[in-house]
């Protein structure tokens, strides 16, 4: 982690991430309660209280290229226990939205998000069977969980047919008007 000096502190990024102060990012006391309860504390590279300080210091690049923002499982333990109600999960959402790419070891998360949204965009609802096929192709992860497939099909937990058509047009419009032609998770 690179050092911030008094002269390098840049509050522009803090304002970009929390323009109206609703996330309470500037209120973090560094007590560490968020990090001690973080579900991903053993696997992440930057803990929640560190992220909260880094955003105040304007360490933009380190945050955007971190493993942490993709390792977050959005369990909301951090914000629920925070004495200052610092909304770290929403900060992480905003960082993910801004990040151009994910580190290699976390790229599957980004690929899954992209395949998930492509399924919703096309069918209005998630078609899980199609999503799994699309994800596995893009992530080059062909063999995991294949053994579970027969039982899931037998028990009717996966459908070979896509969902009904009713919502497709309206949902496609929502996608066109929000993320537009941009590919889902970029």
């Amino acid at each position: 982690m690179s050092k911030a000096t008094l002269h390098s502190i840049d509050s522009a990024f803090l304002l970009e991430m929390d323009p109206d102060g609703r996330l309470n990012l500037a209120s973090c006391l560094q007590c560490g309660r968020c990090s001690s309860g973080c579900t991903m504390r053993l696997e992440t590279d930057i803990l929640p209280h560190q992220l909260n300080r880094m955003v105040a210091l304007g360490l933009t690049e380190q945050m955007l290229s971190s493993k942490a923002i993709w390792a977050c499982v959005s369990c909301h333990t951090c914000v629920s226990r925070c004495p200052m109600k610092v909304d770290t999960p929403t900060l992480i959402d905003r960082l993910r939205q801004k990040a151009k790419a994910a580190p290699k070891e976390m790229d599957r998360v980004r690929i899954f998000n992209e395949a998930f949204l492509a399924s919703v965009r096309r069918f209005g609802r998630v078609w899980e069977f199609g999503l799994m096929a699309a994800y596995k192709t893009r992530a080059r992860d062909f063999f995991s969980d294949l053994g579970k497939l027969p039982a899931m099909l037998r028990k009717g937990k996966l459908s070979l047919l896509p969902p009904p058509k009713g919502a497709r047009k309206a949902v496609a419009t929502i996608f066109n008007r929000t993320i537009g032609k941009r590919r889902a998770a970029k």
């Binding site: 998000n113 998930f116 998630v126 009713g166 929000t178 998770a185």
Partner: peptide
């Protein structure tokens, strides 16, 4: 709810705030 659609789940709020609000709003 007639012709309900996906809520967007984690992939939507990880990707775009307006999309994440619009999918449930519909």
């Amino acid at each position: 709810i007639p012709d309900w659609s996906c809520c967007g789940s984690s992939p939507a709020h990880s990707t775009d705030a307006l999309l994440a609000a619009s999918l449930p709003a519909r």
